[in-house]
Design a binder for these strands. Structure first.
Lengths: 136, 136
DNA sequence: TTGCGTGCAAAGGTTTTGCATGGCA
DNA sequence: TGCCATGCAAAACCTTTGCACGCAA
């Protein structure tokens, strides 16, 4: 891993991530937010930084059926997002970090019945959260 | 729903779907496959047909983190792919249709611990299948 | 004949890449 | 000074759309 320099663009991006922890956002969201603050930032810089953060495991990258762009999600509390499963509300997009123990029984059955082994870090279960159920 | 015409391009696409049931593919995969067979087919025709098949519920459309293009999946046997969960091998892309009963315990815990309700039809659990585990 | 489907071309959006410049350590 | 990161521009992709033409029923 290359050493890392602290630069203004990078700080702006990190700042955005911290302000938007546990929600989904796209590269464009970051660009717009930074622009609204009066700062400038180039697309390629955003993409390169997001890419790096993903490689370092600090960020999750995924795609949603209804969204053209890649979505990202950052979480300060969860260092090991590659090791547990996530659930996402298909209405509001909120993300939940699921404890692997929940799937103990399911994992066993998936292995015996289908011969497959869960890849927890890459799995996202779609769901509807409490708030969104109440709203409807 | 408009009435449906049987055309050569549409047949080529359907043929591809049947030859590639239960695997993921992109619009480009279809274009390439058809081109390799010596036939011609336009991008827009492929997209329009895939769109229609999705609307009719005969095809599932989804996106993967590592793949830029939309992925599709067709299954002859499973009419109700919107009602059960799927698992996909992150190595070879093979898709498995999971019986919802497997998640009985997990679903209960997700509800009590996180207040979330699984959306089976939209969920895809990433996994590694038996063959791919043996290969590595 | 009617109207649906196709091919073509163009456009819009996302993401990547090469390169020279600028800035951190 | 020596790298690393940035900005800019261009290009590569994916996907959608308008339109005229062709073809199935």
């Amino acid at each position: 891993m290359k050493s890392e320099y602290k630069t203004k663009p990078r700080n702006l991006i990190i700042e955005y991530l911290k302000d938007n922890a546990d929600t989904r956002f796209t590269a464009r969201d970051i660009l717009n937010a930074v622009k609204d603050k009066g700062d400038g930032l180039d697309r390629s810089t955003v993409y390169r930084n997001l890419e790096r953060l993903c490689t370092e495991g600090k960020l999750i990258k995924y795609k949603e059926a209804d969204v053209n762009a890649s979505c990202y999600q950052y979480s300060e509390e969860h260092e090991s997002c590659r090791e547990h499963m996530h659930a996402q509300c298909s209405v509001c997009g909120k993300i939940f970090h699921l404890d692997n123990s929940i799937f103990k029984s399911a994992a066993k059955k998936m292995m015996t019945e289908y011969g497959i082994e869960i890849d927890y870090g890459k799995s996202v279960i779609m769901c509807v959260c409490e708030e969104c159920r109440e709203d409807s």
